[in-house]
Write a protein that binds this DNA or RNA. Sequence first.
DNA 1: TATAACTCTAAAGTTGGCTTGAGAGTCAAT
DNA 2: ATTGACTCTCAAGCCAACTTTAGAGTTATA
Lengths: 136, 136
Amino acid sequence: MEYGIREVAEMMNIPISTIRYYDKEGLLPFLSRKESGYRIFKDSDLEMLRVIDCFKSTGMPISQMKEFIAMVKAGDASLQERYDLFEERKRIVNQQIKELEKQMDVIDHKLWYYSTAIEAGTEDIHKEINRPCNTD
Amino acid sequence: MEYGIREVAEMMNIPISTIRYYDKEGLLPFLSRKESGYRIFKDSDLEMLRVIDCFKSTGMPISQMKEFIAMVKAGDASLQERYDLFEERKRIVNQQIKELEKQMDVIDHKLWYYSTAIEAGTEDIHKEINRPCNTD
DNA sequence: TATAACTCTAAAGTTGGCTTGAGAGTCAAT
DNA sequence: ATTGACTCTCAAGCCAACTTTAGAGTTATA
């Protein structure tokens, strides 16, 4: 199947300007064009966009995505490198999830802090004189 | 306990310049100063930095942190508002975790894709003629 | 009391990731 | 063949969140 840029933008939920920007940055190395210069997207280009979206969502800078593209262009010689890149990414994403879970503890503590304060009608219950080392 | 800016920077693992920036933006409304103008951090200021870090890690823009600070300044009248803010944040963080887990699926698929390709010695095994609708 | 290492402010500079705008060409439907 | 909605490129603009720089004052230690 082939698609126009507008179609792709809607399917992937990415602004057209952003897709053009990614292309300009070289992140869609196999993208083809009509005679007129209009971009033609194949399924493999959509897959590339999906990977870009994954990289982006997990905080990878575009400069590093370019390195991945270089590997893709290098063909089978870079298979192991690419595998390693995704392993590294997996490690990073696991860390990110852990970090979010850590922050969730902070949030849950605040929810407790405020719900008890609301019940008491004042935040002061967490600031009693007899608690010199208050850390809430 | 009281601390100097360098100490705080090391304890919280935030650059000194960033702490000054947060202060300038009004995110540390109760921060006090020595005669000389040097900042003095109390435990409650550290707690504020911990909250800022939480907000930041979960993608909250500084403009919205300022709204929270305004609530804090408003005192007990804003307890419910603040509770709601943290509930909203909890929702957002849950979404973020879900998103990361979704991207993890993409990564795991790629790990499978590349490990089989490495075994075969070529990526071509995923591009056989008999698979016109290849979506890997 | 000298000196080295700190602190302060204000303003300008940086970075990444887009978005916008101008000007020009293309396409599909009437 | 005209029209309106699309597409293209290139350059400039924008924004958030810092970081850096310059110049001036402060503090702890020898």
